[in-house]
Computed example of a mutant assay.
Amino acid sequence: MFLYPNMERSHSDLDLGNVEVAETSRDRNGKAPLLGGVENSPAAEAGVGCKRRVAISDLIFRISAAAAALTATIIMGSAQQTLPFFTQLLQFVASYDDLPTSSYFVIALSLVTGYLVLSVPFSVVCIARPQVAGPRFLLIVFDTVSLAFAASAAASSAAIVYLAHNGNSAANWLTICRQFSDFCQKISGGVVASLIAVALLVLLLASSAIALKIHS
C-alpha cells in the first residue's frame, strides 16, 4: 500500500533524469559540430576558392595588360619616317616626339607598364592568401590611377591619328598620312595596343571589385 507512491516517485525521477540526460547529450552533440563547422563550412571553403580563381584571373589580366602597354610604348616610341628626296639638304622627317600628345603617350604608357610589372608580386600574394583584403585594396587604387593615365594617353593620341589620316577641311588641316604612311601605321598600331591595355585594365578593376565583394 505504501509502495505505490514510492514507485511512482522513483519512476518520475527516472523520467526526468532521462530527459535531462537526453537534453544534455543533444546539446553536446548539436553545439559542438556547429562551433567546429563555422570555420570549415562548405560555404567558407567555396568562398576562398572563388577568391583564388578571381585572383588568378587578375594575374593573367595584369600580365596581359603589361604586355599590351609595353607593345604600345615600343611601337609609338619607334614611330619615325624620313621622306626620300634627291638631296640630303632638304628632307622631311616625322617623329613621335614632334607631337606633344605622342610624347605624353610614351611617358604615360611607360609608367603604366612599370607599375603593372611591379604589381605582379602583390597579385601573387592575393592568390596565396585570398582572404587578405589589404593587397587587393591597394591594387584597385593604383589600377584606377593607371587606367586614367592609359585612357587619357590613348584618347589624345587617337584624336591625332584621326586628324593625320583624315585631316580637317574646315580648319584647313591637310592629311599627312599620304606622305608619311609608315609613320601613320606605327602610331595607329600604338593606339590600338593602348586601347587593348585600357580594356584589360578595366577587367582588372572589375575582378578586384568582385574579389572585395566576395571578401565582404
Results as ranks from 00 to 15, higher is better:
Phe2Pro: 11
Tyr4Trp: 10
Tyr4Cys: 07
Asn6Ala: 12
Glu8Phe: 11
His11Met: 14
His11Ala: 14
Asn18Met: 04
Asn18Phe: 15
Val21Asn: 04
Val21His: 05
Glu23Asn: 11
Thr24Gly: 08
Ser25Asn: 14
Asp27Phe: 14
Asn29Ile: 10
Gly30Cys: 05
Gly30Thr: 13
Lys31Asn: 06
Leu35Thr: 05
Leu35Cys: 02
Asn40His: 10
Ser41Pro: 00
Ser41Cys: 09
Ala43Ile: 13
Gly47Glu: 06
Lys51Leu: 14
Arg52Gln: 04
Val54Met: 03
Val54Glu: 12
Ile56Cys: 12
Phe61Asp: 10
Arg62Ala: 09
Ile63Gln: 09
Ile63Pro: 03
Ala66Met: 13
Ala69Glu: 03
Ile75Met: 10
Ser78Trp: 01
Leu83Glu: 02
Leu83Asn: 05
Phe85Tyr: 11
Phe86Leu: 14
Leu90Ile: 15
Leu90Phe: 13
Val93His: 11
Ser95His: 04
Ser95Leu: 06
Asp98Ala: 15
Leu99Arg: 02
Pro100Phe: 00
Thr101Asn: 11
Ser103Trp: 04
Ala108Phe: 04
Leu109Met: 13
Leu111Pro: 12
Ser119Asn: 02
Val120Lys: 09
Ser123Tyr: 01
Val124Thr: 12
Arg129Cys: 08
Pro130Cys: 05
Pro130His: 10
Val132Ser: 08
Val132Ala: 08
Gly134Asp: 14
Arg136Asn: 00
Phe137Asp: 09
Leu138Val: 15
Leu139Gln: 05
Val141Tyr: 08
Val141Lys: 04
Leu147Gly: 11
Leu147Ser: 10
Ala150Thr: 08
Ala151Asp: 00
Ser152Lys: 14
Ser152Glu: 07
Ala153Trp: 05
Ala153Met: 08
Ala154Lys: 00
Ser157Arg: 11
Ala158Glu: 05
Ile160Asp: 03
Val161Ser: 07
Leu163Lys: 04
Ala164Tyr: 10
Asn166Lys: 14
Asn166Gln: 04
Ser169Val: 14
Ala170Lys: 02
Ala171Cys: 10
Trp173Gln: 03
Trp173Val: 14
Leu174Gln: 12
Leu174Asn: 04
Cys177Asn: 07
Arg178Ala: 01
Phe180Ala: 09
Phe180Glu: 13
Ser181Ala: 14
Phe183Pro: 03
Lys186Trp: 01
Ile187Ala: 02
Gly190Asn: 03
Val191Phe: 01
Val191Gln: 01
Leu200Gly: 07
Leu201Trp: 02
Leu201Cys: 01
Val202Tyr: 07
Val202Thr: 13
Leu203Ile: 06
Leu204Val: 15
Ile210His: 03
Lys213Thr: 09
Ile214Glu: 02
His215Tyr: 02
Ser216Pro: 09
